[in-house]
Design a protein around this nucleic acid. Structure first.
Length: 113
DNA sequence: GTGATGACACAAT
DNA sequence: AATTGTGCCATCA
């Protein structure tokens, strides 16, 4: 009897696709939540990108450059978490990324796939 | 099951 | 330019 092929998933889970795409952001460049969402084929799901990154285990977080993902204003999004805000900014500055007076990353550092 | 929340984005005002 | 409202949808209480 023909076995039903294990319902080949067209692609990895949403979060896996997020991690894979974020991993392609080169050092010294930044991308936005909406940009990642669009790149993985889910244009209206920027929120879910943030949720996925938030669920990264500490171990995985060391392999995924989550800090290179910012909001549409190119600023760090960390409501209610001033600690991560500080850490994230430090990580970005450590790779040469610069901010303007409004804590927004200069357009110059935007990743263009 | 229902309703609130959220690492967002975009349109409308 | 700055606010406010609406869409989105997995998660969680």
């Amino acid at each position: 009897m023909s076995r039903k092929p294990p319902a080949e998933q067209p692609q990895a889970s949403f979060s896996e696709r997020v991690y894979q795409m974020v991993s392609r952001i080169p050092r010294g460049r930044i991308a936005t939540y909406g940009q990642i969402a669009t790149l993985i084929g889910s244009p209206r799901n920027a929120r879910r990108v943030g949720q996925a990154l938030g669920r990264l285990s500490d171990a995985r977080a060391e392999q995924v450059p989550w800090h290179r993902v910012l909001n549409a204003q190119a600023s760090i999004s960390a409501p209610g978490d001033p600690h991560r805000l500080r850490v994230q900014r430090a990580l970005l500055e450590a790779e040469g990324i610069e901010f303007d007076a409004h804590s927004r990353v200069l357009a110059h550092f935007r990743w263009q796939p």
